[in-house]
């Protein structure tokens, strides 16, 4: 499923956040949106998921403007994965994932055996079946993020939008989450995720969209567009790029 954003501008009251953002993501791609805190990544993701309606511009999904699609249908096409959070009430991991199937269920009914099977399958694919009966509040941050990804899978949507999936996670969990995202993109999903770590982009993304001041400053394959100059524009620090023997690129700060 391909998603196209054209000339999108968004403002909260009179505070402009996004200015004339355009890009497309094609089927099966993993797009990383890179930018410093407060640059409008979350706002962009809200627009992509149909939660915010931008002031100008359009977001289209296989040619259809997403705010013309009813929430229930949209939920089966775009899944939104929030930053891992602490909900008021404690649900089991299995129930949390089952909630992803809601769009399949009639307004006045509850999920049936078919939905339970979908949820179980989603848990399995993310590799957290053993957590099914644990409480969401009692598992670790990385496990929570995996649960939310499983929930997005249970939604059976072609596009998965992840808002800083690695925020507040330790090193190992960051890599685990990103590998899972990469795996999804390799199969039938289009994945859009945000990060503020250039290394994540080099290691996992097919393409990078760099945002600065609410505008797109670069769009393309990480190796060709993510230069030390661009990183300095985004974050105000000098870095060197180092290529390892296996051909991986890594970002190294130039400490003064």
């Amino acid at each position: 499923m391909s998603i196209e954003v054209r000339n999108l501008s968004f403002a909260y009251e009179d505070h402009g956040v996004l200015h004339d953002v355009s890009f497309t993501v094609s089927d099966g791609e993993l797009l990383a949106v890179l930018g410093p805190n407060g640059v409008g990544k979350s706002t962009l993701f809200y627009c992509l998921s149909g939660l915010h309606r931008p002031r100008q511009g359009t977001v289209t999904l296989d040619g259809r403007v997403i705010w013309d699609i009813a929430p229930k249908r949209l939920a089966r096409q775009i899944a939104y994965v929030p930053q891992s959070h602490d909900p008021t009430f404690n649900y089991s991991v299995a129930d949390m994932v089952l909630m992803g199937t809601t769009a399949r269920v009639g307004g006045f009914s509850t999920p049936g055996p078919e939905e339970v099977a979908i949820a179980r399958d989603a848990l399995d694919r993310v590799g957290i079946s053993h957590l099914a009966r644990r409480g969401y509040q009692q598992i670790s941050g990385g496990e929570r993020q995996l649960t939310l990804i499983a929930r997005a899978l249970a939604q059976q949507a072609g596009v998965v939008v992840m808002d800083e999936p690695t925020a507040n996670l330790d090193f190992g969990n960051q890599l685990r989450i990103l590998s899972t995202a990469k795996e999804l993109a390799g199969r039938e999903h289009t994945v859009i995720l945000s990060t503020h770590n250039p290394d994540h982009v080099f290691w996992f993304a097919d393409r990078v969209l760099a945002l600065s001041g609410g505008r797109v400053v670069a769009d393309g394959p990480p190796r060709s567009v993510l230069t030390p100059d661009l990183i300095e524009t985004l974050y105000g620090v000098r870095v060197r790029l180092i290529e390892t023997e296996e051909g991986r690129v890594s970002c190294q700060p130039t400490l003064t």
Binding site: Y46, S49, G50, L51, P71, K72, R73, L74, A75, R76, I78, A79, Y80, P82, H85, P87, T88, F89, Y91, D95, M99, G100, T102, A103, V105, G107, F108, S109, T110, P111, R151, Q155
Partner: peptide, 26 residues
């Protein structure tokens, strides 16, 4: 009667509005 019928949807409302909405709940 509606409270009982909507009880599954209430589960989603206990999460954030953004999550409930993107999972298809009005």
């Amino acid at each position: 009667v509606p409270l009982v019928l909507l009880r599954w949807r209430v589960n989603l409302l206990t999460l954030s509005d953004a999550e409930a909405r993107t999972m298809g709940v009005d």
